[in-house]
Design a protein around this nucleic acid. Structure first.
Lengths: 337, 337
DNA sequence: GATTAATATGTTACCGATAACTCTAAATTA
DNA sequence: TAATTTAGAGTTATCGGTAACATATTAATC
């Protein structure tokens, strides 16, 4: 590998002079600058980022940890984060945790070893707390996305889950539905809790009774729990006329199960959910959804993270909690009873 | 930040002893090992990967460059690559080029600066050649995915595009179709060329004439060229009875355009394509597709890359070109004429 | 008990860059 | 002309680790 010393020798100057040319610092005569540049081109020199990082004590490397790389909500979010990072000259390392605490732990470890300048993460759940404490302890700035973790104050970008759930239920009630089920993620995830809460509130508001049997707590994640869904559907009789799904993955899995029983949406049952499906599924968008600004989650979160990094040495300002409003998009998956 | 020197001092040993404990090298008495470990825990020590990399001359960092992070083909591929990398103790840095040569160039630059141990990439096109030459020049092992680049010998994992196109056309011909259009990616991309070639061969085999007007060359990428598609559809009269789409993105965009003209698939026109849509779109899978083993692309490609890295110093064996067979999955998007 | 071997640990140099300081020669000022 | 600036370099130490070699114990052998 070519180093600045190789350049320096061939150009007949000191390594420091080469460093100055590279970074445009200090005073260099045009003549030597040109000579050094020519030699650099000749030898195909590329600076060694690690050596720089070691002495500069910053890596210009950020980490984004998401829980499901095949979920379009998260890939869109990733694009937003990437765009913002790139604009400010940071590189972005992705990690895919699959909602798995152990994988998350491995990635946290990688973050610390790599000395990343900051982390953007959608935590696997409340049990991510020790991971966050680890980051805090090592003074790695981080911003949470989509989910809060009780017991840890930090910057966080959230969607308005409670309000979203309320609106979805309201939409169903408006369609004449009174027996409304909820299939949701684990209660160890703040957004799932909020959605459950919004669901309950909306029921109450409409004088509908909360029936525990109509609520299934499973996983937001990519590993489907089809047998759990099947069993749940078997237990509920009569079947509810409408379903709320806590996210897009659950909506799809529920639809699969319904379809296998010969039930069509919306003819036989109605269905609404959080988050858009893949853009490729939108050839024929028919699900009524709460559409969250996925790109903004990543973009805004990244800006907040960069703010923290920039002001790392200053007395840290109060934590910022941004709640992005979500939009109800009415399509054709709710039947008017 | 805590360093091995802090540990060493507090444990009353030398830095080297600490290093030995960390890496389990050399001989260390159980007593000192325990003492050092205790101090490490106490201070919350995490090794500095950069410092290690600098002296070891390896980063254990790999790069995966894909052309569209929102395309499920690539995210599934990414998962395959990630799984394989993780298993061997490597971390994986993702880059999203959006089929854009300039972005690709930026990422190549990042790879070199970071001194990544290897690269897995789906090149933006034939014009990626200089980027690959750059990698070769700097002795960075790489494996191409999904696309070849003329003029550059290397390991590569491809799908059988030609055969896939043949099968898709055959399927349509079998349905009685004789006027078959093709919407394809840019001819600067090897897989697009292969697909065109397969399409032409299949037409010939079935005594159908190749009509240039029935072929649209646009982009595989995420930035839609809707007006181009609209104009193309306007030009063709009568409209073909069937379409082959060069990938999933194009299939979706074409369907949108068709839908906006009130044309339904398969009632009014038939449509087949390469690659599955998002798994979330598979609630109701109805497109007949050539399904490629996306996960295998990433997984196998990563294994090949790791092989190269391991044998970097040995005389390099011949380049390996793996062609993964693709499977025709017949669904309901082709109408029997 | 002296010599040798094995075990446990320390020292030094280096990976590739940059910060902080120093030095030299030319340019400017008094 | 001597004193002072200033432009344009060079020197040295350092970031946090590890390899290679050196050294000090302890154990084994004769």
């Amino acid at each position: 590998m070519v180093t600045i010393y190789d350049i320096a020798e061939k150009a007949g100057v000191s390594a420091m002079t080469v460093s100055r040319v590279i970074n445009n610092t200090g005073r260099i005569s045009e003549k030597t600058r040109a000579k050094v540049k020519r030699v650099m081109d000749e030898l195909g020199y590329v600076p060694n980022q690690m050596a720089r990082s070691l002495v500069l004590q910053e890596t210009r490397l950020l980490f984004l940890m998401i829980t499901d790389i095949t979920n379009p909500f998260y890939t869109t979010l990733a694009r937003g984060a990437e765009d913002a990072a790139k604009k400010h000259g940071y590189r972005l390392l992705f990690g895919n945790t699959d909602e798995d605490l152990e994988k998350e732990n491995d990635y946290i470890d990688a973050v610390l070893k790599t000395r990343a300048d900051g982390v953007l993460l959608a935590p696997a759940g409340d049990a991510s707390l020790p991971h966050l404490e680890m980051l805090r302890r090592h003074r790695v700035p981080f911003v949470l996305l989509d989910r809060e973790v009780p017991g840890m104050d930090s910057d966080v970008v959230l969607g308005d889950s409670k309000e979203g759930a309320r609106q979805l239920v309201k939409q169903l009630v408006g369609g004449g539905h009174r027996r409304i089920a909820l299939i949701n993620g684990s209660r160890t995830i703040s957004s799932a809790r909020e959605r459950l809460e919004g669901y309950r509130e909306a029921l109450k508001l409409n004088d509908l009774e909360y029936d525990e049997a109509l609520v299934l707590e499973t996983s937001f994640g990519p590993r489907s729990d089809l047998t759990g869904i099947e069993a749940w559907l078997d237990r509920m009789r009569p079947l509810p006329t409408a379903f709320v799904a806590g996210n897009n993955v659950l909506a799809v899995e529920l639809m699969r199960s319904l379809r296998s029983r010969g039930l069509r949406v919306p003819e036989d049952v109605s269905l609404v959910c959080f988050d858009e499906l893949a853009s490729y599924a939108e050839m024929d968008p028919f699900l009524t959804v709460i559409s969250q600004q996925a790109y903004q989650f990543g973009h805004l979160g990244m800006q907040m993270l960069l703010d923290r990094i920039r002001s790392r040495d200053e007395p840290s300002p109060a934590w910022r909690k941004v709640v992005l409003p979500a939009e109800l998009i009415v399509r054709r998956s709710v039947r008017q009873l």
